[in-house]
Design a protein around this nucleic acid. Structure first.
Length: 580
RNA sequence: GCGCCCAUAGCUCAACCGGAUAGAGCAACGGCCUUCUAAGCCGUAGGUUGGGGGUUCGAUUCCCUCUGGGCGCGCCA
C-alpha cells in the first residue's frame, strides 16, 4: 500500500536526478505515519534526508520534489510542512482498495515474503526435564511460538527445536530423588530426612509410584549401605555421594531404568503441556544423543586442532579470551567429565551443519554471560558466529498480590504452567505473555490474572471479532443480504471508516516490523488498537442500515476488520471466537 | 570491582531501525443500554521521558557520565 505513494515519489526523485539536482546522492525512501491527521496519511522526510547531500535547503528541495510528482489516482494532494516534510493525503479509493485486498486475501492478508524461504533454527524453552514447566517457562514458550508463527508468515522456513538436557548432573539428582521416594512408597523409611538438595516436588512421588508399580521391590536392595547424608554438611556433596552409591549398587541397567523413569515421564508431561498450549516443536534434541554420537569429542578435537585449547590444573580449557570472552572456559573437568558448555559448543556447531542460515536462541536473561563464550566457540570452530542470534527473555516475577512467589524447582515451590493455563485459559495466558517486550521484566500477579482475568485485553480483541460475526448473524436473521465479492465500497466516505481502513493497511507493516525486531508484542498492541477502533465505530455508527449499498459496504469493512483480527490472533496462538 | 539489561502519567506498559503537539489500559471523577452483544462507548484529569552533558535541522530513541533497580561473573545447569 505504501506503493501508492512510494512509486510516484521515486519517479519524482529520478526525474530530479536526471535534471542534475541530486547528483551523487543515494536515494532512500522513508515514510512515517504522522501522529497528527493534519499531517496527512503518509509523510516523507526525504527532502530532509537528501537536502544536505544536494546542497539545498530542505524546504526548497521539497518544493522541487512536489513539482516533479506525477499525477496519481490514489493521491488527493501533497503538502509541504514544517522543516520540509512532504505530507501525502490519499483519496478514499486508496482505502477502499485496502479493504478489498483484505477480503480478497482472507487468511493470507498480511502474509509476505521477506524471508525468501530462508531456513531458520529457533530454539526456545529447553528447560531441564527435572520437573514440570512453571510460569516462568511459559513466557519463553509463548514468545518463541509466536515469533515462529510471525516469521513463517513473513516467508521464513522456521524449524523449532527443544534442547533436552538429559545428560547432566541435574538428571542424576532427579534419579536419586525418585529413588528415595520409591523407597518411601515401597514402605521403607529413610534413615534421615529427605535431603534439601534433592527434588522435593510432589511430582517426584508420582514418578516413584509408577516406578514401584513397574519394578516392585526389585530396586530396594540398593538402599543397603547408603551414605549417611545426615553426616555430610554440604548438601551438594551429600547428593553426589548418594548418586555415586546408587550408580554403583544398582548397576548400569537398573540405574538406567531409574534415570529414564524420571526423564521420560517429565518429558512427556512437558511435551503435552506445550502442545496443549499451542507450542509445537519440529524436533526434540537430546543432549545425551549428542554425546553418544561423539559430537562433543569431535567438536573438542576440532578446537584442539585449531590450537584453541590447553591443559591446566588437570582440566582441558578453551581459550575463549582469544575471541573476546572475559575468561577461558573449561571443556573437560579434572575428573574427565565434559562440562555443560562442552555439549553446548557441540550442539551449536552441529546446528550450523544442518543447513540453517540463521540460529536464534531464546535464553533466560540470567544466561546472558553465556553469549560471548558460545560465540567464541563458533568462531574458533570456523563457523559463522554472526549466524547466531541470542534473544534474552527477562524473568517473569511472580506475585500473589504484593507478595513475591518463590520459584524453586528443587523445593517444588512453584506455580506450574499447567495450573496457570487451567486458571486463566490458554488464550489469556498466551496473550498476556507476549504483551510486553522480552527485555522488560514481566510482573505476573497471580491474583490479578485469576480474579480479574476478564480484564485481560485478549477479551477486548476477541469481543470485537465476535461482534462482527454477530452482525452477520443478525443480518441473516432479518433476511438481509451479505456482501459479495468484490465489494462495492464507494459509499464508505465517512472519515472514521477511512481511518479504520488505514489501520488495516498497517497490519502487514506491523507484521514485518514484529518479525524484523523479533517482537511479538507489536502484534498484540496493534490488535488492541484495531479492536479499539472498531468498538468506537460500532458504538457510533449503525451498520445494519436499511439502505443495501451502505449496509453491504459497512459489513465489508467489518468483515475486513474481523479477518485482520483473526489473522493477528492466529500469529499469537490465540483463538478468534465468533460468539462470546 | 567488571559485564549485560532496564528506568516514560499514581500503577502496568506503548511510541513504527532519530521526526512534527509522547499515547493506551488500570485506578479516580462525570456521562451513554425499550434499535446491530455495556466483556462496549464518550468525556475530564494525569508528564521537565531518573539527573546532567554531547551529536543533529530535530533525541524517549544515538554517545558519555552520574543515580537507582534486575541479572551474571563455577571444573553448576
Amino acid at each position: 500500500m505504501k506503493n501508492f505513494v512510494a512509486e510516484p515519489l521515486l519517479l519524482a526523485l529520478q526525474a530530479l536526478q536526471q535534471q542534475g539536482l541530486l547528483q551523487g546522492v543515494p536515494i532512500q525512501l522513508d515514510f512515517d505515519r504522522p501522529r497528527q491527521p493534519e499531517h496527512g496519511h503518509l509523510a516523507s522526510n526525504v527532502a530532509l534526508l537528501l537536502a544536505k547531500g544536494a546542497g539545498k535547503k530542505p524546504r526548497d528541495l521539497a518544493t522541487s520534489i512536489l513539482g516533479a510528482l506525477p499525477e496519481s489516482p490514489w493521491i488527493e494532494r501533497v503538502e509541504i510542512a514544517g522543516p520540509g516534510f512532504l505530507n501525502f493525503f490519499l483519496r478514499p479509493a486508496a482505502f477502499h482498495a485496502v479493504i478489498a485486498q483484505v477480503l480478497g486475501q482472507g487468511r493470507d492478508f498480511g502474509r509476505q515474503n521477506l524471508g525468501g524461504g530462508l531456513r531458520l533454527h529457533l530454539e526456545f524453552v529447553s528447560a531441564n526435564p527435572t520437573g514440570p514447566l512453571h510460569v516462568g517457562h511459559g513466557r519463553g514458550a509463548a514468545y518463541g511460538a509466536s515469533l515462529a508463527e510471525i516469521l513463517r508468515f513473513c516467508g521464513y522456513d522456521v524449524f523449532c527445536e527443544y534442547y533436552v538436557n538429559d545428560a547432566g548432573r541435574q538428571m542424576d539428582i532427579l534419579a536419586a530423588s525418585v529413588y528415595l521416594r520409591y523407597l518411601e512408597a515401597a514402605g521403607h523409611g529413610l534413615p534421615w530426612d529427605f535431603p534439601q538438595s534433592a527434588y522435593r516436588g510432589e511430582y517426584v512421588r508420582e514418578i516413584a509410584a509408577h516406578l514401584l508399580a513397574r519394578e516392585g521391590d526389585a530396586l530396594v536392595f540398593a538402599s543397603k549401605n547408603m551414605p549417611d547424608l545426615a553426616a555430610i554438611a554440604d548438601g551438594d556433596a551429600a547428593i553426589d555421594q548418594l548418586i555415586a552409591h546408587l550408580k554403583d549398587a544398582l548397576g548400569a541397567a537398573a540405574y538406567g531404568r531409574l534415570h529414564a523413569a524420571g526423564l521420560q515421564e517429565i518429558l512427556a508431561d512437558i511435551r503435552d503441556d506445550l502442545a496443549e498450549f499451542g507450542v509445537v516443536y519440529q524436533n526434540w534434541y537430546s543432549e545425551r544423543s549428542l554425546m553418544e554420537q561423539g559430537a562433543v569429542e569431535r567438536a573438542i578435537a576440532r578446537l584442539e586442532e585449531g590450537g584453541h585449547c590447553y591443559r591446566a590444573e588437570g582440566a582441558l580449557w578453551f581459550r575463549s579470551t582469544d575471541f573476546g570472552d572475559d575468561k577461558d572456559r573449561v571443556l573437560q573437568r579434572e575428573n574427565g567429565a565434559y562440562t555443560y558448555f562442552a555439549s553446548d559448543v557441540a550442539y551449536h556447531f552441529e546446528k550450523g551443519t544442518r543447513g540453517f542460515s540463521q540460529l536464534i536462541d531464546m535464553w533466560g536473561a540470567d544466561h546472558h554471560g553465556y553469549i560471548p563464550r558460545v560465540r567464541a566457540s563458533l568462531q574458533a570452530l570456523g563457523a559463522d558466529a554472526n549466524a547466531l542470534e541470542v534473544l534474552l527473555v527477562q524473568f517473569a516475577i511472580l506475585y500473589r498480590g504484593t507478595e513475591k512467589v518463590s520459584m524453586s524447582t528443587r523445593a517444588g515451590e512453584f506455580v506450574t504452567l499447567r495450573q496457570l493455563r487451567e486458571e486463566v485459559g490458554n488464550d489469556a495466558a498466551r496473550f498476556f505473555y507476549v504483551l510486553r517486550r522480552a527485555d522488560q521484566h514481566l510482573d505476573f500477579d497471580l491474583e490479578l490474572a485469576t480474579k480479574h482475568s476478564e480484564e485481560n485485553p485478549v477479551f477486548y480483541i476477541q469481543y470485537a471479532h465476535a461482534r462482527v460475526h454477530s452482525l452477520r448473524r443478525q443480518a441473516l436473521e432479518r433476511g438481509l443480504s451479505l456482501p459479495t465479492q468484490p465489494p462495492d465500497l464507494a459509499c464508505l466516505t465517512d472519515p472514521r471508516e477511512l481511518e479504520l481502513a488505514d489501520r488495516l493497511w498497517r497490519f502487514p507493516e506491523q507484521v514485518a516490523s514484529a518479525a524484523r525486531d523479533r517482537e511479538p508484542h507489536q502484534i498484540a498492541f496493534y490488535l488492541k488498537d484495531l479492536a479499539a477502533g472498531f468498538h468506537t465505530y460500532y458504538n457510533a455508527t449503525r451498520i445494519l442500515v436499511e439502505e443495501d449499498a451502505l449496509r453491504l459496504a459497512r459489513l465489508s469493512l467489518a468483515d475486513a476488520i474481523a479477518q485482520t483480527l483473526a489473522n493477528g490472533l492466529a500469529l499469537l496462538g490465540v483463538s478468534a471466537p465468533e460468539t462470546m
